[in-house]
Design a protein around this nucleic acid. Structure first.
Length: 574
RNA sequence: CGGUCCGUAGCUCAGCUGGUAGAGCAGCUGACUCUUAAUCAGCGGGUCCAGGGUUCGAGUCCCUGCGGACCGACCA
């Protein structure tokens, strides 16, 4: 990389790197650095037992420095957080050679560098528990300046806040914005809490294919890819459902999977193209049982994470204490619109939509129309956890028909804060009915619904061998995490959310320039001057180019031999 | 897809009716042995997103494009 593409601060850091090497210090040493203590443990335990902290060894990143001549304070950040360290020249360098303090620490180290320190813990006059450093080792030099975020009395200054940069360079976000790490640690605790809940009940965690010849189990547009050896298209899964149910057919009593699903649809604050779901299937249960199971699980997650069932989400307090409210979809619609749609046909439903000012088009079947009414008029009002039950049969092709009403299915969704969090069925295990429902989906697809499900004949075949009555439930982990950590975008709970690719400015390669007789060492200088393509040069004034090149050579002390004006003219006219 | 707003130093952001680019932090030089948004003195740092246009003159006005944020629409 040419110096010309670096900022001043990056150049200075690279020079410091070289100075370290000249002093015989390896800026990237290979050997282990043994750590005995971590920052927060020290802060919490020191006062109870100061004698236990007379010899500590820590490693972390330098986050700030306050240098006062022959003594300095700095903060380092380790896996637990920040702790102040105190360095005094004559303690760090007891002999005559003061290089380690005067040169290495004061000049060659920077905010962002990773160091290891040994010393003893003490409390400063100002009352801050700190480590008095007696030895220091460079563990990794940082070549890029870090955004410096300062804080006083809970107020944050110069926050690194641009969402685009934070998501693209999540590593920087994690370094400088302390609460980000916390959110992701909570995410993992949520998953662990659920896993613990399932394992305690003896259910088996399994893995099923992500690459699928038929993307089934949900209504969504899939990503498509291609397998070379088989020369067939493969799809990235949109749901785990059909494979997990095959395992129930195979004789497992309870199986669950945490995994990624992929949907080739929009991206916004609540949708990422790949997202994490948990699906669980338990034999010999129905959706009533699953409702109890789900609320027990959610309550446990809340308690494990916060020690309470009451959680602040936006300006609401949501209480995950069991039992959750339950209401059927038709009752919900009746409650919010005053209209009883039970038993209505497609034409009547369209009229209801018209009356309620809900848009609809001819490709929508009965199920979609009802879903639309619910989504438009009811969904947003369910802030506290609520099970919406008994969905119309048309919108649930994998779900068993309701025991009391063949127009409905034994399905529930859990709504929290106006959004769907979980979805569950008494699973359809009648293979003849299942095939019929798939065919209905095919008809929807021919009508123009590009999300209608494909027919999976192998799944039907599996059901034909007999699947026990089973209840299944799926839950969006990203959205659950958003709720539990009070984040309002999905990008805040996914480490690396999908982003539009970074665009690089187009430029001609070095060889294009050397073909014109331009020496290679001048090419970066031309880039710096703004001539990214040889075509840009053609239109330039040779005298101006000559002056720019000589100017940059001088300014950046490149030590190149300046070309003659005629040479530059020759390059350009070629 | 539609509307609104934004793009200026490594980071956060000023820059009025068009007239030689600013601040704080970070950086560099120096002072300083318990500081904590450390302090004090000095210094450097810019393709003002890109391309066109208007103008004697554009960071500023107009058009186009790119990127982003927010709000809607669509979509799980």
């Amino acid at each position: 990389m040419s110096l010309l593409e670096l900022s001043e601060q990056e150049i200075i850091r690279r020079e410091s790197l070289n100075e370290l090497k000249k002093l015989g210090i390896n800026p990237y040493p290979p050997e282990e650095y043994p750590v005995s203590h971590y920052s927060q443990d020290i802060k919490q335990e020191f006062e109870k037992n100061p004698d236990a902290f007379q010899e500590v060894s820590l490693a972390g990143r330098i986050m700030s420095r306050r240098i006062m001549g022959s003594a300095s304070f700095a903060e380092i950040k380790d896996k637990q957080g920040r702790i102040q360290i105190y360095l005094r020249r004559d303690d760090l360098c007891p002999g005559d050679d003061k290089t380690l303090y005067n040169v290495v620490f004061k000049k060659l180290l920077d905010i962002g560098d990773i160091i290891g320190i040994k010393g003893f813990v003490f409390k400063t006059k100002m009352g801050e528990i700190s480590v008095h450093v007696t030895s220091l080792k460079v563990l990794a030099k940082s070549l890029r300046p870090l955004p410096v975020v300062k804080e006083k009395d809970g107020k944050v200054y110069d926050a690194f806040s641009d969402p685009e940069q934070r998501y693209r360079q999540r590593y920087v976000d994690l370094i400088v914005n302390d609460r980000v790490k916390d959110t992701f640690m909570k995410r993992t605790r949520i998953i662990n809490s659920m896993r613990e809940f399932f394992n305690d009940k003896g259910y088996l965690e399994v893995e099923t294919p992500i690459l699928q010849p038929i993307p089934g189990g949900a209504a969504a547009r899939p990503f498509i890819t291609h397998h070379n050896t088989l020369d067939i298209p493969l799809y990235l899964r949109i749901a785990n459902e059909l494979y997990l149910k095959r395992l129930i057919v195979g004789g497992f009593e309870g199986v669950y999977e945490f995994g990624k699903d992929f949907r080739n649809e929009g991206m916004d604050r609540s949708h990422n193209p790949e997202f994490t779901v948990m699906e669980i299937y338990v034999a010999y249960k129905d959706y009533e049982w699953m409702m109890n199971f789900t609320e027990e699980m959610i309550e446990k997650v809340a308690l494990d994470l916060h020690g309470t069932t009451k959680i602040e989400v936006g300006d609401q307090i949501i209480d995950f204490k069991r039992p959750f409210k339950r209401i059927s979809m038709l009752d919900a619609i009746k409650e919010h619109t005053g209209i009883d749609i039970s038993g209505m046909d497609e034409t009547q439903l369209r009229k209801v939509c018209d009356r309620l000012n809900i848009e609809h088009d001819p490709s929508m079947g009965k199920g979609k129309l009802i879903d639309e009414i619910f989504g438009e008029k009811c969904e947003a009002s369910y802030i506290q956890p609520t099970f919406i039950t008994d969905y119309p049969v048309e919108m649930s092709p994998l779900c068993k028909k309701h025991r009391d009403n063949p127009e409905l299915t034994e399905r529930f969704e859990l709504m929290v804060n106006g959004k769907e969090i979980a979805n569950a069925y008494s699973e359809l295990n009648d293979p003849i009915d299942q095939l019929e429902r798939f065919k209905e989906q095919l008809r929807l697809s021919e009508k123009g619904d590009d999300e209608a499900m494909f027919i999976d004949m192998d799944f039907v075949r599996a059901l034909e061998y007999g699947m026990p009555p089973t209840s299944g439930m799926g839950i969006g982990i990203d959205r659950l995490t958003m709720l539990m950590t009070n984040q309002n975008t999905i990008q805040e709970v996914i480490f690396f959310p999908q982003m539009r690719p970074e665009k690089k400015q187009e430029r001609d390669g070095e060889e294009k320039f050397t073909e014109l007789g331009i020496p290679a060492e001048w090419v970066p200088v031309l880039y710096k001057a703004g001539y990214l393509k040889t075509a840009d040069l053609k239109e330039a004034n040779p005298n101006k180019v000559h002056q720019e090149l000589c100017g940059l050579n001088k300014k950046y002390k490149l030590g190149l031999k300046n070309p003659q004006p005629d040479e530059v003219k020759a390059w350009i006219s070629k």
